[in-house]
Amino acid sequence: MYDLAVRDDTLRLLASGLSIGETRRQTGVSTNTIRRWRDRPVTDSPLIRTCARCASLPQTPAPADSYIHLLGLYLGDGHIVACPKGVYLLSIYCDDRWPGLIEEATITMAHVMPTSVISRRHRNGCTEVKSLSKHWPHLFPQHGPGKKHERPIVLEPWQREIVSAHPGRFVRGLIHSDGWRGTNRVRRDLPSGVRWYEYPRYHFKNESPDILALCGEALDLLGVAWRFNNRNELSVARREAVELLDLHVGPKY
């Protein structure tokens, strides 16, 4: 007889995308029991209760740092679409050049929605990390018809509280999904000849002025100096600012 903690841990592993066989090896729970828990969930498991925002007294999604990281990924390069039977599909698109980003997006999504199976679909040059749940619009009220840059993107007060507590995780999600850390090369024509200078910098590019503003506000919370270098792009270029942002974001991998 297994206790509730073992059952919940087993369901979390399944929700993260592990096979039944691998879950059995990690937990020691029999295959038949795992299948029964998967196919016939019970109402006393915290994994199948309504989401934090659906409770009679709405609460902050947990873990908060994973949630706000996933929000950054969604605002940067994700979308939510309605499916039959009141279910919604959350998709995050990750460039195939960054396998670490794909893995991190998968893990973060599983932390936020442990009852849903996380899957991946290879597309042209990228991988779609996706999950089905009826609760995604509750967790991400920024969902709506049309493209994100064609409608207002405003955080709810409870979301702003999480950003204030975890601005680095929010910025990490934004920049890793729709930004980059690279090397800038500057040419200087000097009397002694042409010299080239190189320095690292961050860029975040998005067509939504609201999302750009949210990124700037989070950078302000971190004490990271930034500026707009284009209508739809902000950059972090000062050496001390890049070094500080490296502690929270770092290059894609």
Rank of each mutant, 00 (worst) to 15 (best):
Y2V: 13
V6H: 09
R7W: 09
L11C: 02
L14R: 01
L14N: 04
A15R: 06
A15Y: 05
S16R: 14
E22M: 07
E22I: 02
R25M: 08
G28P: 08
V29W: 06
S30C: 06
T31L: 11
R35I: 14
R36I: 04
R40C: 11
P41H: 07
I48M: 05
I48W: 15
C51H: 04
R53A: 13
S56A: 14
L57G: 00
T60Q: 10
P63C: 08
S66C: 10
H69C: 07
G76F: 02
G78V: 07
A82H: 00
C83I: 03
G86Y: 00
V87S: 07
I92G: 01
Y93D: 10
D96K: 15
D96S: 14
R97E: 15
L101P: 00
I102G: 01
E104I: 04
I107P: 00
I107T: 14
A110C: 09
M113K: 09
P114S: 03
H122P: 03
N124E: 13
G125F: 02
L132P: 00
K134R: 09
H135F: 09
H135V: 06
P141A: 04
H143K: 04
H143M: 13
K147P: 01
H149T: 01
L155M: 09
Q159P: 02
Q159K: 03
V163F: 04
P167W: 07
F170P: 04
V171L: 01
G173V: 12
L174Q: 03
H176E: 11
G179L: 05
T183A: 08
R185H: 14
R185P: 01
R188A: 14
P191F: 02
G193V: 08
R195W: 06
E198K: 14
E198H: 15
P200T: 08
F204A: 05
K205Q: 12
N206S: 13
N206H: 15
D210R: 05
A213I: 01
C215M: 05
G216M: 15
E217K: 14
L221C: 02
N229S: 14
N229Q: 10
N230K: 14
N230C: 03
R231N: 07
L234S: 01
R238Y: 03
A241I: 05
H248R: 06
H248Q: 11
